[in-house]
């Protein structure tokens, strides 16, 4: 929530330097995250868990839609699309196929939930590809990515807790969550060794 809030806040018109954020952020990853949240939280209409759960779902969808809107429409001119070129159909198609084959239940909502879990695990790839192409990441972009990666990494601790104390596990969520966290590892390393020491991420040529 902090990460996505940071992203929306810094991209807002009144922010000090919105350009710094927009140029470093992959619009393709942001669209994938929006698709992820919409596909997963369709159960807003059918399944009530808690006020917190509902509020966070609405927040994730709204903030993610706002980010996509700001990037692709309002601040279209500053969006660095030349470096944002990873083909997202190569991510979406395998996730859709896998969701049709490996799921808990062959129903529309369940398949969309499963698709969202698989898609989220790889949704950061256009962003990482963009950082590798430009060879650097603004510090504010780095904070955002770290918050986004921590969100799933912290769930791994939660899943271990639930396995032992709640007698519950969801293998699809666990495997996808571990894959997702592994994809962030290289970035986590750069974040800890550079950004936390006051330097911005610059990759060797």
């Amino acid at each position: 929530a902090a990460g996505i809030g940071l992203l929306v806040g810094m991209n807002c018109p009144k922010a000090v330097k919105p350009r710094d954020v927009i140029t470093g952020i992959s619009g393709r990853s942001q669209i994938l995250f929006l698709v992820t949240y919409v596909a997963r939280y369709l159960d807003l209409l059918t399944n009530f868990v808690s006020v917190y759960n509902t509020a966070m779902k609405v927040f994730f969808i709204a903030a993610s839609a706002a980010t996509v809107y700001l990037m692709l429409f309002k601040f279209k001119a500053t969006y660095d699309h030349n470096h944002d070129t990873l083909r997202v159909e190569f991510l979406i198609a395998p996730c859709a196929l896998l969701a049709l084959v490996v799921n808990h239940d062959f129903t529309p909502l369940e398949i969309l939930w499963t698709f969202s879990i698989y898609l989220e695990s790889v949704a950061i790839l256009p962003q990482l590809f963009m950082v590798s192409k430009t060879g650097e990441a603004e510090t504010i972009t780095s904070h955002y990515l770290f918050a986004l990666g921590s969100y799933r990494a912290l769930y791994i601790l939660n899943w271990i807790y639930r396995y032992y104390f709640d007698n519950f596990f969801d293998l699809i969520a666990i495997v996808a969550g571990v894959v997702q966290t592994v994809l962030y590892c290289d970035f986590f390393y750069l974040y800890i060794t550079k950004v936390l020491k006051g330097k911005k991420i610059v990759l060797p040529a």
Partner: peptide
């Protein structure tokens, strides 16, 4: 252990 479709996580 029960597993499956209790989607109460975000």
């Amino acid at each position: 252990h029960q597993h499956g479709t209790r989607h109460d996580e975000l």
